[in-house]
Every structure is written in C-alpha cells, then in structure tokens.
Amino acid sequence: EADPRLIESLSQMLSMGFSDEGGWLTRLLQTKNYDIGAALDTIQY
C-alpha cells in the first residue's frame, strides 16, 4: 500500500499540473522524503 505522505504530496503536485508518467514524480518525491518544496527545487534546476 502506498505511503499516505506520498499520496498527499503526489496529488498536490498533480493538481499543480505535473504528471507522473512513468512514475518519475513518485520516485522523486520518495527521494525527497515527500517534500514538495525540495522536489520543485530539483525540477527547477
């Protein structure tokens, strides 16, 4: 079963217009401990 923190973070990022095609966003959020800010910083640079 998916981590509730992942579901919450992923749904927030999907609502911002990101896609999780191929699961890349799920993996990114997992490596950033479900921190949306850290994930966005990684995507920006």
Results as ranks from 00 to 15, higher is better:
Leu40Ala: 03
Ser15Ile: 11
Asn33Gly: 11
Gly37Cys: 12
Met16Glu: 03
Tyr34Thr: 01
Leu40Trp: 07
Gln12Pro: 00
Glu21Trp: 08
Ala2His: 11
Ala38His: 07
Asp41Ala: 15
Gln12Cys: 13
Leu29Tyr: 01
Asn33Pro: 02
Leu10Gly: 01
Leu40Ser: 03
Phe18Tyr: 12
Leu25Cys: 04
Ile36Tyr: 04
Ser15Thr: 10
Pro4Phe: 11
Thr26Cys: 04
Asp35Cys: 08
Ser9Cys: 10
Leu28Arg: 00
Met16Phe: 09
Leu40Ile: 11
Ile43Val: 05
Asn33Met: 10
Arg27Ser: 09
Arg5Ala: 08
Met13Ile: 06
Asp35Arg: 04
Lys32Pro: 01
Ser19Glu: 10
Thr42Val: 13
Lys32Glu: 07
Tyr45Ser: 15
Met16Ser: 03
Leu28Lys: 00
Glu1Cys: 10
Leu25Tyr: 00
Ala2Ser: 12
Leu10Ile: 08
Leu10His: 02
Leu6His: 05
Tyr34Asp: 00
Leu25Arg: 01
Gln44Asn: 13
Gln12Trp: 11
Asp35Phe: 04
Gln30Pro: 03
Gly37Val: 13
Ser19Asp: 13
Asp3Gly: 06
Gln30Ile: 15
Thr31Gly: 11
Asp41Arg: 15
Ala38Thr: 07
Met13Trp: 03
Ile7Val: 13
Ala2Cys: 11
Leu28Glu: 00
Ile43Ala: 04
Tyr34Cys: 06
Lys32Tyr: 10
Arg5Ile: 06
Leu6Trp: 05
Leu25Gln: 00
Leu25Glu: 00
Ile36Leu: 08
Asn33Phe: 09
Trp24Pro: 00
Leu14Met: 11
Leu10Arg: 06
Asp35Lys: 04
Ser11Thr: 10
Asp35Asn: 12
Arg5Tyr: 07
Glu1Gln: 13
Asp41Trp: 12
Leu29Phe: 02
Ile7Arg: 12
Gln30Trp: 08
Ala38Asn: 06
Ile36Val: 14
Glu8Asn: 11
Gly23Gln: 07
Ser15Pro: 03
Leu40Gly: 02
Asp35Gly: 03
Glu21His: 12
Gly22Arg: 07
Ile36Asn: 01
Glu1Lys: 11
Gly23Asn: 06
Glu21Asn: 11
Ala2Pro: 13
Gln44Pro: 06
Pro4Gly: 09
Asp41Phe: 15
Ser9Tyr: 06
Phe18Val: 03
Gly17Asp: 01
Met13Ala: 03
Leu10Val: 06
Gly22Ser: 09
Ile43Thr: 03
Leu14Lys: 11
Leu10Thr: 01
Pro4Ala: 12
Ser19Phe: 08
Tyr34Ser: 03
Ala2Phe: 12
Thr31Met: 15
Glu1Trp: 12
Tyr45Ala: 15
Leu29Gly: 00
Ala38Val: 08
Ile36His: 02
Tyr34Ile: 02
Lys32Ser: 11
Ala39Gly: 02
Glu8Asp: 11
Ala2Tyr: 12
Thr26Ala: 08
Pro4Tyr: 12
Thr42Leu: 11
Glu21Ser: 10
Asp3Val: 05
Met16Val: 04
Thr31Val: 12
Leu10Lys: 03
Leu40Lys: 04
Gly22Thr: 08
Ala39Asp: 01
Arg5Gly: 06
Leu28Trp: 04
Tyr34Trp: 05
Gly23Ile: 02
Gly23Tyr: 07
Ser19Ala: 09
Thr42Lys: 08
Gly22Lys: 07
Ser19Leu: 10
Gln12His: 10
Ile7Gly: 09
Asp20Gln: 03
Ser19Lys: 12
Leu28Ala: 02
Tyr34Phe: 10
Asp3Ala: 05
Tyr45Glu: 15
Ser11Val: 11
Thr26Leu: 05
Asp35Trp: 04
Leu10Pro: 00
Thr31Tyr: 14
Asp20Ile: 03
Gln12Asn: 08
Leu28Thr: 02
Glu1Phe: 14
Arg27Asn: 08
Gly22Leu: 07
Glu21Arg: 09
Ala2Glu: 11
Thr31Glu: 14
Ala38Trp: 07
Tyr45Pro: 10
Thr26Tyr: 05
Leu25Ile: 07
Lys32Gly: 05
Phe18Cys: 06
Gly17Thr: 02
Leu10Phe: 04
Gln12Phe: 15
Gly23Ala: 05
Arg27Gly: 05
Leu14Pro: 00
Gln30Met: 14
Asp3Ile: 06
Leu29His: 01
Asp20Trp: 02
Asp20Gly: 02
Ile36Ala: 04
Leu29Gln: 00
Leu6Val: 05
Arg5Thr: 05
Gly37Trp: 15
Tyr34Arg: 01
Met16Asn: 03
Arg27Leu: 11
Thr31Leu: 15
Met13Asn: 00
Asp41Gly: 08
Thr31Cys: 15
Phe18Asp: 01
Trp24Val: 05
Thr31Gln: 15
Gly37Ile: 14
Asn33Arg: 08
Pro4Met: 11
Thr42Pro: 01
Ala38Lys: 11
Thr26Ser: 12
Ile43Glu: 01
Tyr45His: 15
Asp3Glu: 09
Thr31Lys: 13
Arg27Gln: 09
Ala38Gln: 10
Arg5Asp: 05
Ile43Gln: 02
Tyr34His: 04
Asp3His: 08
Leu40Met: 09
Gly37His: 12
Ser19Ile: 10
Met13Leu: 10
Gly17Ser: 03
Arg5Leu: 09
Leu14Asn: 06
Met16Asp: 02
Leu40His: 03
Gly22Asn: 11
Thr31His: 13
Ser15Cys: 10
Ala2Lys: 14
Glu1Leu: 12
Phe18Ile: 05
Ala2Asn: 13
Leu25Lys: 00
Phe18Gln: 01
Ser15Tyr: 08
Arg27Asp: 06
Gln30Phe: 09
Leu25Val: 06
Asp20Ala: 03
Thr26Gly: 06
Ser15Asp: 09
Leu25Met: 04
Ala2Ile: 13
Ser9Glu: 02
Glu21Tyr: 09
Gln44Ala: 11
Phe18His: 04
Gln12Lys: 15
Thr31Trp: 14
Gly17Leu: 04
Gly37Glu: 13
Ile36Ser: 03
Leu28Met: 04
Tyr34Val: 01
Trp24Asp: 04
Gln30Thr: 13
Tyr34Ala: 03
Ile7Cys: 10
Ala2Gly: 11
Leu29Met: 04
Asp20Tyr: 02
Arg5Lys: 10
Gly17Cys: 04
Gly37Met: 15
Gln12Ile: 15
Tyr34Asn: 06
Glu1Gly: 13
Ala39Met: 04
Glu8Met: 12
Gln44Tyr: 15
Gln44Leu: 15
Ala38Arg: 09
Pro4Cys: 09
Arg27Val: 09
Leu14Trp: 06
Gln30Asn: 08
Trp24Ile: 05
Trp24Leu: 05
Ile36Phe: 05
Leu6Ser: 04
Asn33Lys: 09
Pro4Leu: 11
